[in-house]
Amino acid sequence: MFAKAIASAVKRKFIEVNFTNVEDSDTHSILKNKFKEAQTNSPAILFIDEIDKLVPMEMSDSPFFSDYSRSTLQLLLSLLDGFGSNPEVLVVCTTNTLHQMPEALTRAGRIDKHINLPLPDDESRKAIAEYYLNKVLFNKTIDIDQFVLSSEGLSGADIKTVINEAGIEAVSKKYESISTKLLIEHISRIEGKSLVKTSNDQDSEIIAYHELGHFVVANELKKIIKDININATNTQLGRVRYKLPSGIVTTEDLLDDVVIALGGRAAETVFLNKKYVGSWQDIQKSFTLLEQSVTYGDHGFDHLGFNRITDRMYEEIHAKVVSIMEDSLQKAIQIVSKNKEIIMGLHPKLLAAKTLTAADLKAYFEGTIVEAEEDDEYRLAYDSLRDEYIEM
């Protein structure tokens, strides 16, 4: 898309080299023919997508690369050098591994201009979504701002796929149009997570409490919530997504993430008085991140790990991580306790809808008043889990 836009802007013919479903034995002839076509039709732009699949990475002696792949690189270099006398042909390539490209390919005089194309920002995702939505039958009440929020991290191609797949499902299921919720569901699928069914309604009730625990903690810590979802996938039973901070991650950001991660366990403790296996993923992830941060001095923590981690130093690191986890769990339980009415109010809505978007949550909160509860009665619930974290 980017290369086509360049070709259109400078009024050059666009020629694409596509090696999808091409046998290795045909690669050389295709390259030669495409370069010849570009030369004949100059001024032109010759576009090679994912060039890293065509040439070996910067490991010329590696046994993983065949003589044929090395000869392909030599052919490509020769063809590029042949364009030196024709500035009317511009060669544009894409790669996700520029740092692994052979120096012979990226040196001055060959492919020497490197442009970083980051993922689209909020404004760009909105423009891309509106462009593709106008090509399908969609509900005019679609919350485009919610879609922009939930689609953070997606590429332009991902957004196109989300909208196209949602359109196909809408037609196949005879929906009148594409809705916001349908788009959000397909964002989950584009992230590589196929939907699965939970075993029973009781599981869904537990998962809903767990995810709402994450939500109220994230909300209390002033995070921008994207959505709450209990559509189980093959990698997770539910999720709460919130906007990540831009720029360098601070110690406060890290500690907030840990408290939010423990919000699910806090909700299980307050509402169900049980501990479920799903929480261990949150606990393990938080513990590992904190352990690395404390050991190597990341995120502003004091540097405890020097050249070699001794047994004594490991005990100090472990004790500090356990202390942070204990404090974080206490904070999470206090926040969940304070927001019990919100969780109880949202629980049936989440069970019914499976997904609550930022707009759904905003509409709910407009008529909701929550009174803080005493924290002391939940200190006992926290203390009952204290030994569990010490044993980790």
Rank of each mutant, 00 (worst) to 15 (best):
A381L: 15
E37K: 09
E374A: 14
F215K: 00
S188N: 13
S384Y: 07
K140V: 06
A353N: 15
T233G: 10
S204M: 11
G156C: 07
V294H: 01
I228V: 15
S172K: 15
L117R: 04
Q100A: 13
H347E: 10
K53V: 08
D61F: 07
G247I: 09
T295A: 12
T95K: 03
L262G: 04
L244F: 05
S85C: 05
M344G: 02
V322M: 03
K243S: 12
S199F: 10
S60N: 13
E23L: 12
F14Y: 15
G238T: 11
M101W: 09
T27H: 04
L90H: 05
A363T: 12
P348F: 04
L119I: 08
Q330A: 09
E205V: 02
D121S: 05
G82C: 09
H214Y: 02
K222Q: 12
T233C: 11
L182Q: 08
E291F: 12
L361F: 12
T40Q: 12
A108L: 06
N219V: 01
A353L: 09
S286C: 08
S286F: 03
F65I: 05
H318Y: 13
N21G: 08
K362F: 10
M57N: 10
D256N: 15
L182F: 04
Q292W: 03
L76W: 00
M325Y: 02
L90F: 07
P43G: 01
V321K: 01
V270M: 07
Q202D: 14
L182M: 14
D26M: 12
L80S: 06
D61G: 13
E58Y: 07
K349Q: 14
Y209H: 11
R70L: 09
I128Y: 00
S78K: 09
A352H: 11
I207N: 00
L351W: 01
S29E: 13
N234D: 10
N139L: 02
E23T: 09
S150C: 15
K354V: 05
S337E: 03
I369S: 14
K338Q: 11
M325V: 10
V217L: 02
I48F: 02
F138M: 03
I115H: 03
N33Q: 15
S194Y: 11
N229G: 06
G213P: 06
Y276K: 08
D24A: 12
A363N: 14
V217P: 01
N21C: 07
S199M: 09
T20K: 14
D143T: 03
S279H: 11
V92F: 11
D145Y: 02
D256L: 03
Q74V: 12
N86R: 12
L79G: 04
S29R: 13
T72G: 06
S8A: 14
A5H: 11
N96P: 07
I283S: 06
F215A: 05
D387G: 10
T233S: 15
S172Y: 05
A127Y: 03
D383R: 13
F2T: 13
S199Y: 10
V10Y: 07
Y68F: 14
L133E: 00
L272H: 08
E103V: 07
A166T: 14
F35G: 00
G82L: 08
Y68D: 08
D302M: 06
I228A: 04
A44N: 04
E165I: 02
Y314S: 10
N231M: 12
R107V: 05
D360N: 14
S42W: 01
L385T: 13
I15K: 02
A129Y: 00
F47L: 06
L346W: 00
D145E: 14
R110I: 04
V91Y: 03
D256W: 02
K11A: 12
G82Q: 07
T368E: 12
